[in-house]
Simulated scan of single mutants.
Amino acid sequence: MDQIAYVNGSFLPLADAKVSILDRGFLFADGIYEVAAVLDGKLIDNASHLARLERSVGEIALALPETTDRIQEIQKELVARNNLVNGMVYLEVTRGADSGRDFAFPKSGVKPTLIMFTSVKDIINAPSAKTGIAVITVPDIRWERRDIKSVALLAQVLAKQAAAEAGAGEAWMIEEGMVTEGGSSSAFILTQDDVLVTRQNSSAILPGCTRKAVVALAEERQLRVEERPFSVQEALAAKEAFTTSATVFVQAVVSIDGKTVANGKPGPMTNRLREIYVDFARATAV
């Protein structure tokens, strides 16, 4: 069966899903995106993703062409049309296609572009969930509004490519000696005193939806959480390290720049938090 995508009100084969070369998302990266995981044919933590979508478009004065309720209906229909059991739904909204290439916003008559498509991924049974991943560190060269989930991802592309070339599963970005976040994930450590540490939300990082859920789930279980920056040296001295995102859930980090974290295996806290998050995901899926 051909994969089905959604473009501006129409469901059509992915091969036929196209937008104008004048679309501002293509010309200026003038757009916002979200990725929601799918487990057992249902969307995971989707309300959090749609709330972040609304916040991001608001920060760049971009009006959504559909309500978030309607966007969720489209997501669900795409899941059904593609018979998707486990994977992801990607959505992107841009400021649309103007008549030329002017940096300033279109004055009128330009409707935002909304596209969505699905992909298959078995997040639960991913081999790396059992082995953990290596990460490398790279300078954080991004702009100062990382809290906006912009489609302008060139810095992350370069970071992830460097990780791939090094045989690593992720790149942690470093600013002023401290870890900001991963190329497509939030970063956590568990200190020797059993404190979970992750950087506080600010314009320096994306407010991760999975990060938010994991912090809340940990606090509900009376685990100690500190939201503050940490260094690579602190991470290497930690009991455990891990990342979170919609596409990996909770993922152990077993080495950083070739140096082993603890015993080089996923730790018990990471494994437990992954189990807790998966239980939460299934219980709240829509």
Rank of each mutant, 00 (worst) to 15 (best):
G258F: 04
A163V: 04
N263Y: 09
S203Y: 09
V197A: 12
V89N: 02
K149V: 00
R52M: 06
D279P: 01
V57W: 00
G41F: 06
A235M: 05
E220D: 13
E226A: 13
F28L: 14
A171N: 02
R70T: 14
D23R: 11
D45A: 14
I174A: 01
A241G: 00
L236S: 13
R211Q: 05
K149E: 02
R146N: 08
S186V: 00
R282L: 09
K42E: 09
T210I: 04
I71A: 05
I136A: 01
G9N: 10
K259M: 11
K42P: 02
V197Y: 05
L22Q: 06
D16N: 02
R95H: 07
A237S: 15
I21L: 14
K42A: 09
G31H: 00
G25L: 07
K107Q: 10
N82P: 11
A37S: 08
Y90K: 06
I71D: 00
M116Y: 05
T198C: 14
T113R: 00
D257H: 15
L223K: 01
A17D: 08
A51F: 07
F26Q: 06
I71Q: 06
A155L: 03
G258E: 01
E176P: 03
P112V: 13
R282K: 13
G109E: 02
D45F: 05
P127R: 07
S255K: 05
N86K: 12
I60T: 06
S231Q: 04
W143T: 04
M269T: 13
V135I: 15
A238L: 03
I21C: 13
S150P: 03
A164I: 04
Q3I: 02
A162Q: 04
A213R: 07
L53H: 10
W143S: 14
P268W: 09
G25T: 08
R101H: 12
E34H: 08
N201F: 10
A238K: 01
I189E: 10
S128H: 09
G132D: 08
T191G: 14
I124M: 08
T270Q: 05
L43T: 03
K265T: 14
S231I: 03
F249Y: 06
K212H: 13
A168W: 05
Q192L: 14
S108R: 05
G87W: 04
V286L: 11
T67F: 00
